[in-house]
């Protein structure tokens, strides 16, 4: 059953993770991780490769089941929900290795994101009733609007397989946004992007968060993380190493030693 998520008071975190652990065979990927994401904020999770960041995302988004602990969205326990129910509860995500739909055009990709709002029955669909036609038009309009926002309008009817890497990264975000989420998980949205593409996405993400949308971000690009985030969580070998504001992380000796050592001066020079 999809839980009802009501508009909640600002104090209830958009996402609340408690004691999440998961192991694969003998390898502990995530070890008793807990954190809160306040509503409307951009929350970043950083850490070296293999720290368990994507695995954590996979647990939060229902793809993996954690051995213990809870996940709450707007205060409601969603720990045992399947991914598609989580989506219907307001969670959306992008993927580190990009799971776009290559055989569908860009606008069709985004229209799949409108599935949550599309309520026509199978019978209506197979008879191509006017309700379906109207709904198709609405979904397409919404999809085009999102493509516009992410500067992809001119590619609307291009098959996704032909789009550039940077375009695809933005397409995944547009598609995730089509579900009208409350909580958006972005898994390395600028990985492999050049400086121009990265900047475009940074601007887009910055404009995203607000009253109705909270963003959790996994990234390696320190400039982006420091620039965008309200709070940062540092993960190391599956455990929480530190949590705090970007400034605090920049100055935390444990963090610098474990992770930022190489990037310390990059961080020091990152603009706020």
């Amino acid at each position: 059953m999809t839980p009802e998520i009501h508009s909640s008071t600002p104090q209830v975190p958009a996402l609340s993770v408690r004691d999440i652990s998961i192991a694969f065979g003998g390898l502990v990927a995530v070890d008793a991780v807990s954190f809160d994401v306040p509503r409307g904020e951009i929350f970043s999770i950083i850490g070296p490769n293999g720290a368990g960041k994507t695995t954590l995302f996979n647990v939060v988004s229902g793809m993996y089941r954690s051995n213990a602990g809870t996940v709450r969205i707007d205060g409601v326990d969603v720990s045992r929900l399947l991914p598609f129910r989580l989506a219907r509860a307001g969670l959306a995500r992008t993927f580190q290795n990009m799971q776009i739909f290559p055989a569908m055009t860009a606008v069709e990709n985004v229209m799949v994101g409108c599935a949550r709002a599309e309520t026509t029955s199978l019978w209506a669909d197979l008879l191509y009733l006017p309700t379906v036609q109207r709904q198709n038009a609405r979904s397409r309009a919404k999809a085009l609007e999102l493509l516009e926002r992410l500067q992809l309008s001119h590619h609307a009817d291009t098959p996704a397989a032909e789009l550039s890497y940077g375009s695809l990264k933005r397409l995944e975000i547009a598609r995730a946004l089509a579900t009208e989420p409350r909580l958006l998980l972005l898994d390395e949205p600028v990985a492999g992007c050049n400086a121009v593409e990265t900047d475009e996405i940074v601007q887009i993400v910055k404009a995203l968060s607000g009253d109705r949308l909270s963003v959790v971000l996994i990234e390696h690009d320190m400039k982006m993380v420091m620039h965008l985030s309200h709070r940062v969580l540092v993960l190391h070998q599956g455990k929480v190493l530190a949590e705090g504001s970007p400034d605090e992380m920049r100055r935390n000796p444990k963090v610098i030693e474990a992770y930022l050592g190489v990037h310390a001066d990059e961080v020091a020079h990152a603009k706020r």
Binding site: S61, M63, L82, P83, F84, A87, R88, A92, R93, F95, Q99, I100, F101, P102, A103, M104, E108, M111, V112, G113, A115, R116, R175, A176, A178, T179
Partner: peptide, 18 residues
């Protein structure tokens, strides 16, 4: 559209509410 999404990536389709 849901079917074609499933064909290309079940994971992504599920993550979008399908």
């Amino acid at each position: 559209r849901a079917w074609r999404a499933i064909l290309d990536s079940e994971t992504a389709a599920a993550s979008l509410g399908v």
